[in-house]
C-alpha cells in the first residue's frame, strides 16, 4: 500500500512539475493542482498508511492501541487542501485570464 502511494505521489509530482514548466497557457494551473495533490498525499502518508485503525481510545485505556492511523497528518492535509483550493482557484483565474490572445487583456492594454 505504502509503495503504491509513494509511486502515485511521484507520478503526480512529475506530471505536475512538467505542466508547470510550460511557457504559457492554462496547463500551468493544472500543474499547480497536480503538484498540490502530490504534496498533500505525501503529508497524508507521512506516518505510514495504516488501514482500518481509527485512533479511538477504548474505555478504560488512556491511549489508542498501536498501530493506529495518526490523526495529525490528516488534520494538516485538511488545512492544506482548503488553502490549496483557494490558491488553485485564484491561479486558474489568473492564468486563464492572462493566456495569450485573451480578448480581455488585448482590449485593456
Amino acid at each position: 500500500m505504502a509503495t503504491w502511494l509513494a509511486l502515485l505521489c511521484g507520478l503526480l509530482a512529475t506530471v505536475g512539475t512538467r505542466l508547470m514548466l510550460r511557457p504559457k497557457g492554462p496547463g500551468r494551473a493544472l500543474g499547480i493542482v497536480l503538484l498540490g495533490l502530490a504534496v498533500n498525499l505525501l503529508v497524508f502518508t507521512m506516518t505510514g498508511a495504516v488501514h482500518g485503525r481509527a485512533p479511538l481510545v477504548e474505555p478504560g485505556a488512556s491511549s489508542p492501541e498501536p498501530p493506529y492511523a495518526d490523526p495529525v497528518p490528516q488534520a494538516l492535509v485538511l488545512t492544506a487542501i482548503v488553502i490549496g483550493f483557494a490558491l488553485q482557484a485564484f491561479a486558474l483565474v489568473l492564468l486563464v485570464l492572462r493566456a495569450p490572445n485573451d480578448p480581455d487583456e488585448e482590449a485593456q492594454s
Binding site: M20, G36, V39, L42, V43, M46, V72, P73, L76, A91
Partner: peptide, 17 residues
C-alpha cells in the same frame, strides 16, 4: 510562490514523519 509553499508543506510533512 506556489512552488515554494508546496516545498515548505512537503518539508514540514517530512519533518513530522
Amino acid at each position: 510562490a506556489v512552488l515554494s509553499s508546496m516545498l515548505l508543506l512537503a518539508g514540514v510533512g517530512l519533518l513530522y514523519g
